[in-house]
């Protein structure tokens, strides 16, 4: 599967393939909408306006792209090394939980210290959740696919419990947390927050880490042939645990940024499944941080436009998930399988 996704990055015919990968799902969606009695043009317009139609709409796109990007990066790191981390959602939720706890319970701290602490706590919580899966895989051989997925459910319940228990707002009126004491700084009077800059910096750093460092080289080598990499002297346990810790930290930070920058309080169900969409984002981005950036933006736009699409075209917002799924499937479909033989000539 590493190689399946990597085929996206082959330069030959890339433009044609990507055009196909966009045109096929668009065509199918249009057909589907028309058959269901909606106007596909109206829908497309509403979707576009919802994502880019105004400054406010564009902000919405960027804000949704941010957690998708960070979770997509977490998935990318792991997939590159052949570790199927589908627990970005749980890692994101853990980060959110930790940021909310610090942001509402340590209010006596000075703001300059509290904000970094909250973000750090978010990263650490995400890393902890990722690290559990990594440790289980490295030392007990538990497949990370299973453990990361299960941990998603654990964290989902943990949030549900927290907003009705220890982290519920003082008034106790709704199942939600208090407003955090230290929201992320914003640009001007818009909704864009400093977390977006952090996400961009992390994207760049991970691009360098994966493709221009010795560590990234080892990770990629491990993903392509773990046995040979092990025989070459790389310690697999250290690598697996380290990677899942790192990936968890990135996704956890995404959760922290979402709480401190967007929702400003812990809400049950604040994530519409960013961590799951991130798997599609990572694959669509060709498992490259720079590609993930583009894919996160695309999916962010789709999800931002969904609300307007529902209101003005009457098409259920859930249709965007159908669109996302079809985009991913068609991208994987247009990338051809490699030649049957992987050996040399002769």
């Amino acid at each position: 599967m590493v190689e399946t996704a990597l085929r996206l990055t082959l330069p030959q015919h890339r433009a044609r393939r990507l055009a196909l990968a966009v045109l096929i799902p668009v065509g199918l969606m249009a057909l589907f909408l028309e058959l269901s009695g909606y106007s596909s043009l109206t829908t497309a317009r509403a979707l576009f306006e919802g994502a880019f139609g105004s400054g406010y709409a564009f902000e919405g796109t960027l804000l949704r792209a941010c957690p998708l990007l960070l979770c997509g990066l977490a998935v990318t790191l792991c997939f590159r090394a052949g570790l199927w981390n589908i627990g970005a959602e749980g890692q994101l939720l853990a980060g959110a939980l930790a940021a909310a706890a610090v942001g509402t319970r340590l209010t006596s701290w000075p703001v300059g210290l509290l904000l970094p602490t909250a973000l750090l706590a978010a990263s650490c919580a995400g890393a902890l959740v990722g690290g559990i899966a990594g440790g289980l895989r490295a030392f007990r051989g538990v497949p990370e696919v299973v453990s990361t997925l299960m941990l998603n459910f654990v964290l989902l319940q943990a949030i549900g419990w927290s907003v009705q228990g220890p982290l519920q707002e003082e008034s106790g009126a709704y199942p939600q947390g208090d407003l955090v004491a230290v929201p992320l700084p914003r640009f001007g009077d818009g909704r864009l927050h400093g977390g977006l800059v952090m996400a961009l910096v992390i994207t760049l750093a991970l691009e360098v880490l994966l493709f221009a460092t010795r560590i990234g080289f080892r990770w990629r080598a491990f993903g392509l042939n773990p046995e040979a990499t092990r025989a070459a002297g790389v310690r697999p346990r250290r690598l697996i645990v380290g990677l899942l810790l790192g990936a968890g930290a990135v996704a956890g930070l995404g959760g922290g940024i979402e709480i401190l920058g967007v929702t400003l309080r812990l809400l049950d169900g604040f994530s519409p499944g960013y961590g799951y969409s991130a798997i599609a984002v990572a694959l669509l981005g060709g498992l490259r941080p720079s590609g993930v950036l583009v894919a996160a933006f695309l999916f962010g736009a789709l999800e931002a436009g969904a609300g307007r699409m529902q209101r003005f075209a009457g098409v259920p917002a859930a249709m965007t998930y159908l669109a996302e799924a079809m985009i991913l499937l068609s991208v994987l479909w247009v990338t051809r399988p490699p030649s049957r033989r992987s050996g040399g000539v002769g």
Partner: peptide
Amino acid sequence: HRHGLILAM
């Protein structure tokens, strides 16, 4: 192929 090389690299 299994232990000596990473064919895709």
